[in-house]
């Protein structure tokens, strides 16, 4: 194939998502043979798998120590100097969670348990700016969608062009129905006439 033909194919917007999906697939397949290994020296430390379960902790594997507002938990940010009171709410759990963890050894593995205090610290304290950005992406999509629906989708019956088009369509439709009725009428009459004769 000539290179010019290839460029012409690339110039059609319809082909671009397919090309992108194809190249993404190729890179992901190549990714399967790249050696992947988790670096244990992570931003927010995690205990080794099963370690806390073997120790028999009630909120395993999410126990990071610390007493809320008294003693900081085990948490290791990139720039500790920017977040001085970090770790103070790491160990926070809601009263319900406290109660369930006091009667069950499996609280940490259940669906309704989540490291609430820790997630709050990451989301709103050390990485708060990311949270603002994420929600602004959502806000922008809502602004776009709601503007379009208010001004176009919901406002369609006030659009002059749309009204003209609708009127034209209605006239065409009624004309078509009328001609249909006429044709059927003529047919039926012809049939009746044939039968009478």
């Amino acid at each position: 194939m000539r290179i010019g033909a290839l460029w012409n194919k690339l110039a059609k917007p319809k082909n671009i998502p397919r090309l992108f999906a194809f190249s993404l697939g190729i890179i992901l397949i190549i990714g399967l043979i790249v050696p992947l290994a988790l670096n244990p020296d992570q931003l927010y430390v995690r205990p080794a798998p099963q370690e806390q379960v073997d120790e028999g902790l009630a909120i395993a594997p999410y126990d990071r120590g610390g007493v809320p507002l008294k003693e900081p938990g085990n948490i290791d940010p990139q720039y500790p100097e920017n977040a001085e009171s970090l770790g103070m709410i790491t160990g926070y759990m809601s009263p319900l969670a406290e109660f369930v963890s006091s009667i069950s050894p499996y609280f940490g593995t259940s669906i309704y348990s989540s490291p609430g205090g820790l997630i709050d610290e990451i989301l709103y304290y050390t990485r708060g700016f990311d949270t603002i950005l994420e929600s602004s992406i959502l806000m922008m999509s809502f602004i776009i969608a709601s503007w379009l629906s208010i001004n176009y989708t919901m406002n369609r019956k006030n659009d002059e062009d749309e009204i003209k088009k609708d009127v034209k369509k209605a006239i065409d439709d009624s004309n078509r129905v009328a001609s249909h009725v006429k044709a059927n009428d003529a047919k039926a009459r012809a049939k009746q006439l044939r039968r009478d004769n």
Binding site: D130, L133, E134, S136, I137, M140, S141, I143, I144, W147, L148, N151, Y152
Partner: peptide, 16 residues
């Protein structure tokens, strides 16, 4: 995140 925000805004500018 900034990149994703720019992407959605690009669509928004021509959406109307």
């Amino acid at each position: 995140l900034f990149m994703a925000l720019v992407g959605i805004l690009n669509i928004g500018i021509v959406s109307a």
